[in-house]
């Protein structure tokens, strides 16, 4: 496989052809923030947190969906990018009802830690406070759309890893929601295999195991790439 040479934050690095910018950047020890990206799943480019500046391109590019190219000069943490990332996390915090204090994933949440990482001590935008009923009809799991960031990690996990495609998106814009089958209560789904991988992939407390209280959800999103890696070695 041919090797490429890129400059990332002033450092010359090499990468294999076919890698995305995100893979190259993370592979070189730079902790580029992401939210909708989860290793092993197809990249989505929706959260826009992994945006980087590429010399010669007018606008920042989402690293997770930008292929690395020979000679690219990439900046990952300019003041402008930091400002945009902060704005995006603020927009997410204001969009739904992310009440950290009473959340099953308090202390382990990706959105919560991103907010702290970007120094967000308050949100300047108006809270939209949408009314989104919780689905507790499933025997083992619950879904609180009020805590959802619409990253679609669960949708992709269900489709690409479990192969069930129980979860999908419905609605448009700010009214988008994760939908179970054709908008059924989760407990009535005939396609859900109750595998629980969606719960593991969720970065926030939107999907959770029942009977967990504040801060008790144990997250293991690394399970998804591990399952895929295991499959690869055993299916060969």
């Amino acid at each position: 496989m041919p090797a490429l040479t890129l400059t990332i934050d002033g450092r010359l690095v090499s990468s294999r052809a076919g890698e995305t910018l995100l893979q190259v950047i993370r592979g070189n020890g730079i902790d580029l923030p992401t939210l909708c990206y989860l290793e092993g799943l197809s990249p989505r480019g929706g959260c826009r947190l992994c945006m980087v500046e590429v010399a010669g391109r007018e606008k920042p590019q989402a690293a997770c969906v930008t292929p690395a190219e020979e000679g690219m000069v990439v900046t990952t943490g300019s003041e402008r990018l930091q400002r945009y990332r902060r704005q995006i996390v603020e927009l997410l915090l204001a969009e739904r009802n992310h009440t950290c204090s009473v959340c099953v994933v308090n202390g382990q949440c990706e959105l919560q830690s991103l907010a702290a990482r970007f120094g967000i001590d308050h949100v300047r935008y108006a809270y939209l406070s949408p009314r989104l009923p919780l689905d507790a009809s499933h025997q083992r799991f619950g879904m609180d759309p009020g805590r959802c960031v619409l990253c679609a990690r669960c949708v992709r996990t269900c489709d690409e890893v479990e192969g069930a495609h129980t979860l999908d998106l419905r609605g448009r814009g700010v009214r988008s929601c994760i939908s179970i089958d054709l908008n059924e209560p989760w407990g009535r789904s005939e396609t859900c295999t109750t595998c629980g991988k969606c719960v593991q992939s969720c970065p926030t407390g939107a999907l959770f195991e029942k009977w967990t209280a504040r801060g008790e959800k144990v997250r293991a999103p690394e399970l998804i790439p591990r399952i895929l890696a295991w499959r690869e070695t055993h299916e060969r």
């Binding site: 929706g46 704005q87 619409l150």
Partner: peptide, 8 residues
């Protein structure tokens, strides 16, 4: 609704 800046 796919990307955050436009959606929110």
């Amino acid at each position: 609704g796919k990307c955050v800046p436009c959606r929110a």
